[in-house]
């Protein structure tokens, strides 16, 4: 019987018990396939080092789309009712949006942002494109009347890595936030106003380079 993937991993890191180790060795002596599998897994550090042509973004999206949030598994009747409600809600939303647009034609707001959110020119440190050598603190200029600031750090592809809300204009990252050396990250600050408006800074990019304490 061939070795399992777990056997191979354990054998490579010396985690097999004596009896299993001996029987794995005996098997490998006569099994070309398993020896090949073993040697292949042993090359993991090489794989991590090697450069390969990048993945097409459309394929990443295709792979990503393989897993979508699950929908309810109700009966056909409830599905129809749910769909019916969605259609009605959609129509109502369209009517409201058209009405609002007609009433506030002189003030055009972005279709992608709520009225309460708007861009603000905040001075941020580290600056856009900066190379960060240590887990230095993040600083930003204050916004008059803001009662708090929300800081968010993202992976380069947009996935949220960490966020916090505080009243200061600087923050030191907790030890739980780990940067990969050589990787780029994005960050921004939102100023929270007493009248529920939110001012967002522009997104800044920085690259973490090893050289200082992590």
């Amino acid at each position: 019987m061939h070795l399992t993937d777990a056997d191979i991993v354990l054998l490579l890191r010396g985690g097999l018990g004596r009896k299993r180790f001996q029987s794995a060795k005996n098997h490998l002596a006569d099994c070309t396939e398993c020896t090949e599998r073993l040697a292949f897994v042993d090359r993991l550090p090489d794989f991590l080092r090697e450069e390969t042509p990048p993945l097409k973004s459309s394929l990443f999206e295709k792979a990503e789309d393989l897993v979508r949030p699950k929908r309810s598994n109700g009966s056909w009747l409830s599905n129809i009712l749910v769909r019916g409600r969605v259609v009605v809600a959609g129509l109502a939303a369209v009517v409201v949006v058209v009405g609002v647009l007609l009433l506030t034609q002189e003030e055009r707001t972005s279709r992608f942002r709520a009225d309460t959110e708007s861009q603000v020119s905040l001075m941020l440190m580290p600056l856009d494109g900066a190379r960060v050598e240590s887990r230095s603190s993040f600083y930003w200029s204050s916004v008059a009347d803001a009662y708090a600031y929300r800081v968010e750090i993202f992976h380069a592809k947009g996935l949220s890595l960490w966020n916090t809300t505080l009243t200061d204009t600087s923050v030191s990252l907790p030890a739980t936030v780990v940067f990969e050396p050589g990787s780029s990250y994005l960050w921004r600050v939102e100023a929270l106003m007493p009248d529920t408006r939110i001012y967002r800074s522009e997104i800044q990019k920085f690259t973490y380079v090893q050289g200082g304490p992590r």
């Binding site: 993937d5 777990a6 292949f40 090359r43």
Partner: peptide
């Protein structure tokens, strides 16, 4: 469910699986 494997073994295990 693999007995004896640690969380740190996941990349190696994944290599074996993806190779298969």
């Amino acid at each position: 469910k693999e007995l004896g494997l640690k969380s740190s073994d996941f990349p190696s295990w994944l290599v074996a699986v993806v190779r298969n």
